[in-house]
Design a protein around this nucleic acid. Sequence first.
DNA 1: AACCCCGCCAACCGCGTAGAG
DNA 2: CCTCTACGCGGTTGGCGGGGT
Length: 316
Amino acid sequence: MGRAPCCEKMGLKRGPWTPEEDKILVAHIHSHGHSNWRALPKQAGESLRLTNASPPSSLSRRGVQGAQDPSLTSVFCAVFAGLLRCGKSCRLRWINYLRPDIKRGNFTDEEEQSIIQLHQLLGNRWSAIAARLPGRTDNEIKNVWHTHLKKRLDPSAQEQHQEAKKRKKPAAAARKREGKVKMRKLDALTAKAAPVLSSPERSVSSTLTESTSTASAAAEQHGNSGSSASASASVKEECFTSSEESEEFQIDESFWSETLSMPLDDINDVCMEPHDAFGKPAGADGGDMDYWLKVFMEGGGDDDDNNDGALDLPQV
DNA sequence: AACCCCGCCAACCGCGTAGAG
DNA sequence: CCTCTACGCGGTTGGCGGGGT
């Protein structure tokens, strides 16, 4: 009941996000936060004042004030010129890609070990695992698990994998695994090498004990299925804490280069209130776009000499 | 040079659940 | 207590790029 409709049914855009859409979304989240994903696309559109296509009146207020048209009651997705995406898609994009504290690039050995150990403890609860790895998303961890780690751990699969590798050029295989990172995506220049685990102690040692006590305890309480909510809830708090304390914020470079080239005025002179887009206290550590722009103007551009493709940002 | 195969990863889908009315 | 809405999660898919033939 009450399931959100998929975007295509509402004629909303699907598929890869464009830099423009990213800008809109980021600008809006930075200024307004993301308390209501469902209404966000509409609000984002409004904040941009892209009034060349005003939202259908039957839709424009639905996200906030509730349904009037029964046929659309449960299928509201804001449609607006600025962001033709459903809230679900916006949320995914933000969480998996646009969040400023996301760490890009290959997983380090430490991170992989952490994932393996956490997976033994928590199973497929990727969000709980992600909560223990600052800067990594559940989606990313899930992908890494299925593409690398699972094969590595499963002997039979590993054999097959090794044989397959032997058949290929070893160097090519290695290069492919290590070097091929998101080069084809809209930025095509994000990660060039392994990033640094922002706080290894947290994510490896201390996190393990914590995860057993919180998430798995909750799992025991509620049984295996359906426990994810409570478990991940308890872990998630720590996730945010970790993010806040994280010393490194690594953002996709191309995104910010795009953003930098964009006339800021076009984003509605967005008053970048230090409103929390990340659940941070406003103002304290600067969640506003200006800050990030400044950071990248100061620190950006050196993607060659730095071996890790992730910018070392000043402490926030 | 062209085609094929495979791996990777961003995005989608659908379910479960919390919370509001 | 029931219904409905919205969110979050895990599983799955599809497209792209690189390497092999």
